[in-house]
Computed example of a mutant assay.
Amino acid sequence: MENIDIGKKVEKYRKMKDLTNRELAALAGITPSMLSQIERGLANPSIQTLKVLAKTLDVPTFSFFMEETNTEALIVRSNKRKKMIVDNLSYELLSPDFTGNLASAILTVPPYTSSSEKLLDHRGEEIAVIIEGSIKIYLGEEEYLLEVGDSVKIPANLKHKWENNSNTVAVVLFSVTPPIF
C-alpha cells in the first residue's frame, strides 16, 4: 500500500467527472486550498473527507486505496512466452504469470503422444479449443475426437487426458481457473 497516492486518485476521478478543483471543493464542502493540497500529496484527508469526496465523485471510498495496475506487465509478447516441456508436451503460458484467478496456455501435443499414461484430475475448471490438428480427449469413462475449432469444458476434478493418435501435431489453447498446472 505504500505506492498508493490518494491525492492522485482524487485528481484522476475529479478530471474524469470533468470538474475543476473549485467545483469539486464546493460540492464536497471543503476549501479549494485543502483539495489542492490533497491532490498534490501535501495533506492527508481524513476518512470522513474521503467518504465525502467518494460520494461526490460517485466512486466507492475503497477505490482511493486500490493499487494501480501496471498494464505493461499484462502484455505477453509471442517471443517472450514462458515455456515448459514435460514428457514431449510443450506448454506456452499466454498469461503473464500464475497470479489471479485464470491462466491460459497453448498445449502442443506431438504425433502419437498423450498427456499422461492414465486419466488425471485437478481442482481447476478448464476450457479448451483445438486450434491445430485433431485430438482425442478422455473425459471420465467417455472419449471424444476433437477437430480444429471444437472446444470442451472440463469441470473441476473430472479425470481426463489428451491423446494425439495422428501423424501431425495437435495444438490446444486452454484456460484454467484457478491457475494450476
Score class of each variant (00 low, 15 high):
T61H: 13
Q37L: 11
P32S: 12
A28Y: 00
M16C: 08
Q48F: 09
R14T: 04
A73V: 06
T56D: 02
D121R: 09
M1D: 10
A43H: 09
L93S: 02
Q48C: 00
R40Y: 10
N3P: 05
T108W: 00
S36M: 04
L50P: 06
M66S: 12
K82G: 13
P32L: 09
I131P: 00
T113L: 11
K8S: 14
G124I: 01
S33W: 04
I180E: 10
M1H: 13
K12M: 06
N44C: 10
L102P: 02
L19M: 13
L146G: 02
V171N: 08
T69W: 01
N70H: 07
T49I: 10
A156Y: 03
E126D: 03
A28W: 03
A28F: 04
Q48T: 05
I30P: 11
K15P: 03
Y144E: 09
A103M: 10
A73D: 13
N167F: 08
L42A: 12
E147P: 11
P155N: 01
L24E: 11
A43W: 00
T56W: 05
I30S: 07
S46Y: 07
P45H: 03
V169M: 12
N165D: 10
E117V: 14
L42G: 15
I154K: 08
V10I: 11
H160D: 03
N165P: 02
E2Y: 09
K9P: 05
I6H: 07
S63N: 08
Q37V: 01
P32T: 10
L27R: 15
E117F: 04
D87P: 10
P96N: 00
D58C: 05
T168S: 15
A73P: 05
V152R: 04
S166A: 11
N165M: 13
I106V: 15
D5Q: 14
P32A: 08
D150F: 05
L74A: 10
S36Q: 07
S95T: 10
I38C: 07
F174N: 04
R81S: 02
E132W: 01
G149V: 00
V109C: 08
S134G: 12
D150G: 01
P110L: 05
V148G: 04
N101C: 08
V171D: 08
N157T: 07
I135L: 06
K153G: 04
M16Y: 14
N79V: 09
L146F: 08
T168D: 15
L173W: 05
E143I: 06
E68A: 06
L173T: 06
A170H: 01
L53W: 02
D121Q: 11
K83S: 14
S115P: 01
H122V: 02
V86G: 02
